[in-house]
Design a protein around this nucleic acid. Structure first.
Lengths: 221, 221
DNA sequence: GTCTATAGCTGGATAGAC
DNA sequence: GTCTATCCAGCTATAGAC
């Protein structure tokens, strides 16, 4: 974009956004102080405060910069496959997952994948709000698209299955290392293409399962 | 003040364990201080330190008290269904999930479900270690059982699918509220029996999908 | 075993010079 | 816009009386 920035270093704002992305992803919201953040970006504490004000703003701006392109890419892919006629279930799921898991789009994208997954289970209310604002609209569009190719599936069942898809996706993005620990490192959730190749058919089969009859209520204390 | 000490109130240790379970589940490891913990348990800061030493010990002991019964119940259920002959895929998955999701076993179990899910994505290394020590053995047994009923599935595919199951399970236990936000509250992951009724067939269908042919490598570094 | 008191830090955020 | 200096609330952990 701006070639004029042929200066020695990248602008302060950008250095802070990058450092925040990387450190929040690695240590969580409460795990990194604005002092550490500033030091990592080679910036004074006051400079951070000048540019972003309170800590929450930094996270919000990191998120704003990355989430919109992901949501846009999702919609673009969905539009593309729908333009070719009735899409397959697999194609829809892939259009949903790929932009979230793919990291090689822009420099610095990889930490964001982890950051986003971390944010999903972060207890702070404002992180939920950030997430909802960023993705509710595009996710809603995908639920509609899924409903169209699964006409026999009740809306509630679809919602549950979409929820499970989000869980499998988040867990893969967060990569907590459980599966490496269980298989001696045989499978690596960090391999994006391989993760997609496995998750898409797994989820598709799940979505195609017969609808669930509502179970009888268990006696509850 | 105290007439025979342990009559009027529950012991200090137990009050601290309960408070820790609830507060760590709600706010995460870094989100709650030992001061808050002590106040919540109606105990002084020093009493906490006397009983548990450093903060990490409290979490470790909370976990030790709950995880073992869950793993044991899993193994008991697995043994029970295997005793009746070759178990179904659904029965195995249910035996794995139910003890993790069920909360009405003992007083105070509900917060632990959330705590455990939170711990799975916590960045601290020691929380991963706690989790691995608690569940690696029983999870290994379930992977074996799954392999037995899915003889045609390569081990790598099975590992990936087990990983996705863990993700869907964790996400449901953590209940980050995404699906309520997307469906206007129509589906509630906090309803254990309903969650099981939906997750078991979803995962079973995923496990039964055809094995994945290893995709061509994308250009990568 | 339980208390009060406090040491010794680190946290987020700001003031005001330049 | 960027700095140094600072405020002060909050943190973990310990000391020492009872």
């Amino acid at each position: 974009m701006d070639r004029l920035a042929a200066e020695d270093e990248r602008p302060v704002r950008q250095r802070l956004l990058d450092a925040g992305e990387r450190l929040f992803a690695a240590h969580g919201w409460n795990g990194v102080s604005i002092r550490t953040l500033a030091a990592e970006a080679d910036v004074t504490l006051s400079a951070l405060n000048y540019h972003f004000g309170e800590k929450e703003n930094l996270l919000a701006e990191i998120f704003a910069a990355r989430a919109a392109p992901i949501a846009a890419e999702r919609m673009r892919l969905l539009g593309k496959i729908e333009a070719k006629g009735a899409p397959t279930l697999e194609a829809i799921i892939q259009a949903f997952l790929r932009p979230a898991l793919t990291v090689d789009k822009q420099f610095g994208g990889a930490p964001f994948v982890k950051l986003r997954a971390r944010l999903a289970t972060e207890p702070e209310a404002f992180s939920r709000r950030i997430l909802a604002r960023a993705f509710d609209q595009s996710s809603g569009a995908f639920i509609k698209a899924l409903q169209a190719v699964l006409p026999g599936l009740p809306a509630a069942d679809l919602a549950w299955r979409f929820h499970f898809l989000l869980g499998a996706m988040s867990y893969t993005m967060a990569n907590p290392g459980r599966i490496q620990s269980l298989t001696g490192g045989a499978c690596d959730p960090g391999d994006t293409e391989l993760a997609l190749a496995h998750l898409v058919p797994f989820a598709a089969a799940g979505f195609r399962a017969a609808p669930v009859r509502r179970p009888r209520r268990r006696t509850k204390q």
